[in-house]
Write a protein that binds this DNA or RNA. Structure first.
Lengths: 188, 188
DNA sequence: GAAAAATGACACAAATTTGTGTCATTTTGC
DNA sequence: GCAAAATGACACAAATTTGTGTCATTTTTC
C-alpha cells in the first residue's frame, strides 16, 4: 500500500526541516506504523542513507535530463533550474545532509557523484554564458551558484506556503533568477 | 563569562537548522555546561521562548531602524535587506519557528508584532515602488516578498559557507535582488 | 480462495535525552 | 580580600526515543 518511495519521500520531507525529528513523526507522515520503518530499514541511519541515495539519484537524473534537453546554454540553465525546483525539498534535504557531513568525510564515495557530473556541467554553462557577456561579469561564479540554489529554495518555500500558484511560479523563478544575474530575456 | 545573549545566539544557530537537536549540542556551542542552561531557563521550551523573543526584538529593531533611516523607498528597501542579512540566522530561525507554530496558533500574541509593524511597512514600500514603475508590475507583491526572504537566506548561506567575502556580499545581494524584481539601478 | 508476505498493534529492553540535586571551584560585586 | 552568586562536574530519576519480539489481521500473489 505504501511503497518505499513514499516512505523515503516522507522521511526527506520531515528530516529536511528537522533532522533530529523522531521516527514516529516520519512514520505518521508516511501513514505507516513505526514498526514498518524498521522492517524496511535496519536503522535510522540506513533510512537516512536510503534518503540520500534516492535524492541524489532523482536530482541527478533530473538535472542531467535538463542539461541534455537542449544545446543552447541559456535554455539548459533554465531547465536545470526547473529540474531543481521539481526535485523540491529533496534538494533542500541534500544540502542539509552535505552541510552536515562536510566536516566528517571530505571526498567520499557517492557524494561527489552529483557534484562531479552535474555541478561541473552547470559551472561550465555559467562560465560560457559569462564569457559571451550574457551573464554579467561583475559577479563570481560562486555567487551565481548561491543565487541558483537560493532561487530553488525560495521557489519551494513559495510553493509550500500555498500562497502562489504552482504553475505560475516556475517561470517567475526563472525570470527573477535570470534578471538577478544580469541576463536580459527576450520578450516572448 | 558567557552571557544570556551568547547562549541565545548559540541556541538560535543550532535550532535554526536542527530544531530537535538535544540541549548538549547547544551547550557545547555556547561553551557552557548543560546544567547552566537549566539554571537560566527552566525548560527547553523556555529557552526556545527566549530565543523567539530575542530574535523578534532584534530583527524588529534592525528592520525599523533601516526603515526609518531614509525617506527614499528604494533606499529603505535596500537597508531593510541589509538588516535582514545582519539578523543572520536569527531570521532563518524565526521563519522556522513561525512555520512550526502556524498550525497551532493562528493569530497569537507577539508573533504578529513583527508582522504588523514591519511587514506592513515593507509591503507599503513595495506597493509604492510598483506604482511608480520602479519595481516591475508583472510580479506579485507576494512573490517579491519571497524573493526578499530568499535573498536573505541565500546571503546567509553564502556567508556561512565561507567562500564569499562577508563585506562584498551585501551589495551583491542587493544588486541581485534589485535586478530580480526589475529594478534598474543607477551606476554609482 | 489459500498460502505467503507484509503490516499494525501491542509489549519491552536498551539507549538517549530531559530535568534536578549536590558540592567543590570559579567568578563577581563590593 | 571576602562574601555572594554563578558555574562545572558529577550523579541520578523520569521521560522520550530507539530498536526488537510476537501475534492477530490485512494485503499480495498465484
Amino acid at each position: 500500500m505504501v511503497n518505499d518511495q513514499q516512505i523515503i519521500q516522507a522521511a526527506i520531507a520531515v528530516l529536511g526541516n528537522d533532522f533530529s525529528a523522531p521516527l514516529d513523526v516520519i512514520a505518521d507522515k508516511a501513514g505507516v506504523a513505526r514498526r514498518t520503518l524498521y522492517r524496511r530499514y535496519k536503522d535510522r541511519e540506513q533510512l537516512i542513507s536510503a534518503c540520500r541515495k534516492e535524492t541524489m539519484l532523482i536530482c541527478k537524473a533530473a538535472m542531467n535530463q535538463a542539461y541534455n534537453s537542449s544545446q543552447e546554454p541559456l535554455k539548459q540553465l533554465e531547465r536545470m533550474l526547473y529540474a531543481g525546483i521539481d526535485c523540491n525539498y529533496k534538494y533542500a534535504f541534500l544540502n542539509k545532509l552535505q552541510q552536515r557531513e562536510q566536516p566528517k568525510l571530505f571526498s567520499d564515495h557517492d557524494k561527489n557523484d552529483l557534484d562531479d557530473n552535474v555541478k561541473l556541467k552547470w559551472r561550465e554553462l555559467v562560465i560560457v554564458l559569462q564569457k559571451d557577456g550574457i551573464i554579467n561579469n561583475d559577479i563570481s561564479v560562486h555567487w551565481v551558484f548561491f543565487l541558483f540554489d537560493g532561487m530553488i529554495s525560495t521557489t519551494i518555500t513559495a510553493i509550500e506556503s500555498g500562497d502562489v500558484a504552482v504553475n505560475d511560479v516556475k517561470p517567475y523563478a526563472w525570470k527573477s533568477f535570470a534578471r538577478s544575474i544580469g541576463i536580459k530575456l527576450k520578450q516572448k
